[in-house]
Amino acid sequence: MPNTLSRATLSTVAVASAFTLVTACGSAPEDSASGGSDSGDFTPCMVSDSGGFDDKSFNQLSYEGLQTAAGELNVEPITVQSNSPTDYTPNLNNLVDQGCGLVVTVGFALADATKEAAEQNTDVNFAIVDDSSIELDNVKPLTYDTAQSAFLAGYAAASYSKTNTVGTFGGSQFPTVTIFMDGFADGVKYFNEQKNRDVRVIGWDVDAQNGSFTGGFEANEVAKNTAQGLIDQNADVIFPVGGPIYQSAAQAIRDANRPIALIGADADVYVSDPSVSDLVLTSVTKGLATSTEQVVKAVGDGSFDNTPYVGTLENDGVGIAPFHDFESQIDPALQGELDTIRAGIIDGSITVTSPSSPN
């Protein structure tokens, strides 16, 4: 069955070891700051958040976008990995000192450090992923209305569920996390309205804006126990939102020894992490690689502007991945229904909102 929603699917490849990677506050090799011939001395740079570039999620996708653009521009990028929040400011200063023409900071956690660096270095361009709080001429926000795509995933989860219970949980209660959870829960609600069903969502209350969170974005016992709590309430679809915490959810699912599907976030987790591919129903994707690639090439071409980028279903900046191995297990009518809903969201006949949606 064709999956027209796959146009927004991100194809994620492993981070190649041949690329220069600077961890914590280390210095890059001296030749890393030299640009290629096509773009003069332009050097694009990137700082990860504490999840690192191998998180199989938004850090890795942003990294891949940087590398793709750098290859097309024939320049050598510099990447600096943060091991903790205390690394953000020194890592940014490190890159500015090395003559970076653009610094991409990955994640809202770097907002304060990015703003400070941008204010102090007005001749350097910055872009920040998942944050729109900075209003400066030299900072471009890259944001994503994932409520739209999560709405589709919630509808699909409700359609697939055999227990009439689906669950979601997040890393920390930040807008970039809860926007997924809002859309997911609203998609389940829409399914119930359309099908006269009563599939319940556990782990998140849209009206109260509260639910289950692990307190961080690490794959650990807390994340596994949080997923287990949803499983114990009979959820047979689980949507973890927060980088690597899906890995802990996958462990809980395997331990449960009964059919439970996983929904990925940011990347198409079926592709980015084959170790859990047999569990992945679909993923709610963000065009991190594409948007990062675009801003790097814009600076390389001398056309940077600070107009916020907002990824939507209409511009393929968000989407849902194919059903992959689950395609034979879903309702044959589901894909057509999702195509209709997607079109309705784009033309405005179906309203999807979240308190955390980008302006």
Rank of each mutant, 00 (worst) to 15 (best):
N220A: 01
T79N: 07
P259W: 02
D347A: 10
V106L: 08
A235I: 13
L288R: 09
C25A: 07
I134H: 15
S159F: 07
F42V: 05
A118E: 14
V139D: 03
V75C: 07
Y63A: 03
T114L: 11
S172C: 10
P85W: 07
T290K: 14
E30D: 15
Y160I: 08
T226G: 05
D97V: 05
A252K: 06
R197C: 11
S357D: 02
C45H: 06
F58I: 00
H324R: 05
A14M: 08
F58T: 04
G52P: 10
T4Y: 13
T23E: 12
P308G: 08
I202E: 13
H324F: 12
A33Q: 10
N315H: 07
G167K: 14
G287V: 11
L110I: 10
N93C: 12
S50Q: 14
A127R: 03
V310C: 06
N234G: 06
S159Q: 04
A343M: 03
L73H: 03
N315A: 06
P274S: 10
S37A: 10
F191Y: 12
V104K: 07
V13P: 00
I245W: 02
T9C: 02
V177F: 07
G336V: 11
D278W: 09
A150T: 04
S328R: 15
D145H: 12
S6T: 09
D268H: 03
G302I: 09
V96F: 13
F180M: 01
S354A: 09
V103I: 15
R254Q: 01
S303W: 04
Y63S: 07
S84N: 13
E135D: 15
D255T: 00
V188G: 00
N164E: 08
A265R: 02
P85I: 01
Q335C: 06
P244I: 04
S50N: 06
L152M: 06
Q120D: 15
I341W: 02
D278M: 11
P175F: 04
F126Q: 03
A156R: 03
G311V: 05
N83L: 10
L338I: 07
E135T: 15
R7D: 13
P322E: 05
G71V: 08
G65H: 04
A343H: 12
A8R: 12
T307R: 07
Y144V: 01
I179S: 13
R254C: 00
A321L: 04
E116Q: 15
V222Y: 03
S6R: 13
D87W: 05
T43P: 00
V241S: 01
S283Y: 14
D55P: 01
V22I: 12
V299R: 11
P308V: 05
F151A: 05
S50L: 01
N257V: 05
P322R: 01
V352S: 10
T68F: 02
D236S: 10
V104R: 11
L142N: 01
P141Y: 08
